[in-house]
Amino acid sequence: MAADGEGKRIDPISQFEITPMAEWKVGSYDLSFTNSSLMMLIAVGLILLWLFLSTGRRSLVPGRWQSIVELSYEFIGNMIRSTAGSDGLRFFPFVFSLFMFILFANMLGMIPFFFTTTSHIVVTFTLAMMVMCLVIGYGVYRNGWGFLRLFWPSGIPLAIVWFVAILEVISFMSRPISLSVRLWANMLAGHILLKLFAGFAVMMVGAFGLFPGVFGALIPFAMTFALVPLEFLVAFVQAYVFALLTCVYLSDALHPGHH
């Protein structure tokens, strides 16, 4: 990042900065409305607008928009059914909201100069903790102490079952972290890379003038060009992975006995 050509600096970090738009403090907590909050609300608004407009007519034979909604509905539904079984469908609204929220947040972040909410570890960690709270809360509510069977694998000799139980606990505790870090790191890294390559392309032209600089800019420009579709794919896959793992963990809450 030591890129100082003619005083221009490529700063791939500044895109993650939060700027407060309306200050609001409650006690010692800062609850200001920021650009991050704005993007979250925009994401939610877009999802609701999309779903509302495209299912407004309720036609039996779907139009293009309605069939996209139905496809995503069945996509999530099949995902839950195949990982958590049919009784996992009670969490359908939650998983659907989660998937759509992350997907829209990621996709909005791909628009230049838009803030990416999922590139902040607090946001992804909060989402992951929501999942884990739901898993633990529902698991205990449904199974009582039987939920602890999750950490006590069956069919293993007593001598090493303690060892495996410790491993299970470590795995369980690492779940929210891996869930949040995966999403966050991917979004962060992707945006830093995009910014770096695009910045290089601009900087080449700036440093060597328009004529020779264009050739220098070709490679970073091509990289940027190649990265954009990849980043869109990653944005989708990360939302998918998050929702999929949520389903897997919810399956533990539903059936803690068997893995």
Partner: peptide, 16 residues
């Protein structure tokens, strides 16, 4: 900015 992020995330996700 942790608190505002968490707060607004919960609000918007809750609405959704």
């Amino acid at each position: 900015y942790f608190s505002t992020q968490i707060f607004w995330l919960l609000i918007s996700f809750g609405i959704l």
